Simulated scan of single mutants.
Amino acid sequence: MIYRSKVDRYYKRFLMIIILILALATFWPLFLEGGNILEVIVVLGCIFGAITAFLLWCTLSIKYVFRQEDLLVSGGPFRSRIPYQSITKAAPTTAIYTGYRVMSAREGLEIFYTTAAFGSVKISPEEPERFIDELKKRCPHMQVEA
């Protein structure tokens, strides 16, 4: 079963601001430097395009997959396999700026597990109630906070 990440308005605005700042930082040298404008536009356009594509890939490809033995949390090139037996607790969270997170919303769930380098992962499934129900089926030993 696959759950997509919720993308809220706050995160969309945040991403747009980051892309605008990146565009300004990338193309500002065009106004300061002389030389062949076409070459500069092509090189900077490729740099801007590659970084923007990477940001969008990491954001828009976030998904949470319930597999046979583990929960796969992925976004762009980042992947975490969380064995069900290592999951200890699931709790709501709004702390989006700290810890290991693969989410694109201000509100989400924090999954605590014993094999984590940081102790937990923060996620934001589109349907958190259904996600928690599915997680309870696979991890009956897990604590769930409201």
Rank of each mutant, 00 (worst) to 15 (best):
Leu56Gln: 04
Leu44Asn: 10
Ala117Asp: 15
Cys46Gln: 08
Ala95Thr: 15
Ala23Met: 03
Thr115Ala: 02
Phe131Met: 02
Ile2Val: 13
His141Tyr: 06
Leu60Trp: 15
Arg79His: 15
Gly35Ile: 02
Asp70Gln: 12
Glu127Trp: 15
Lys12Ser: 07
Leu109Met: 10
Leu71Pro: 12
Ile37Phe: 12
Thr88Asn: 08
Ile87His: 01
Arg81Ile: 14
Pro92Gln: 11
Phe112Lys: 14
Ser61Thr: 14
Ala91Gln: 08
Ala50His: 08
Met1Ala: 09
Gly75Lys: 01
Lys122Thr: 06
Phe131Asn: 01
Leu32Lys: 10
Tyr11Lys: 07
Leu30Trp: 10
Leu24Trp: 04
Phe131Lys: 01
Cys139Leu: 05
Lys122Tyr: 05
Pro125Tyr: 07
Ile17Ser: 11
Phe131Pro: 00
Ser86Lys: 14
Phe48Ser: 05
Leu135Trp: 01
Phe14Leu: 09
Glu39Arg: 14
Arg130Ser: 14
Phe48Asn: 02
Lys137Glu: 11
Ile41Phe: 05
Ala105Cys: 08
Ser80Arg: 10
Ile18Met: 15
Ile96Lys: 13
Asp8His: 00
Thr114Lys: 10
Leu109Cys: 02
Val43Lys: 05
Leu22Phe: 08
Leu15Asp: 09
Leu71Glu: 04
Pro29Ile: 00
Thr59Glu: 05
Ala146Asn: 12
Ile17Thr: 11
Arg79Ile: 12
Ala91Pro: 03
Asp133His: 09
Arg130Val: 13
Leu24Asn: 06
Glu126Tyr: 14
Leu56Thr: 04
Ile19Thr: 07
Pro125Ala: 04
Glu145Ala: 06
Thr26Trp: 00
Leu20Arg: 03
Arg81Trp: 13
Ile47Gln: 06
His141Ile: 13
Ile41Asn: 08
Ser61Ala: 08
Glu129Gly: 08
Ile87Thr: 02
Phe54Lys: 06
Ala117Tyr: 14
Ser104Trp: 10
Glu33Asp: 13
Thr88Ile: 12
Ile82Leu: 05
Ile51Thr: 12
His141Trp: 02
Lys89Asn: 12
Tyr84Phe: 07
Arg138Val: 02
Ala116Gln: 02
Cys139Asp: 01
Ile87Tyr: 00
Glu145Phe: 08
Thr52Phe: 00
Thr115Leu: 03
Lys136Glu: 00
Leu38Val: 15
Ile87Gln: 00
Lys137Met: 09
Ala90Ser: 12
Thr98Asn: 15
Leu20Ile: 13
Arg79Gly: 10
Val42Phe: 13
Met142Cys: 01
Thr52Glu: 01
Pro92Met: 04
Val7Thr: 09
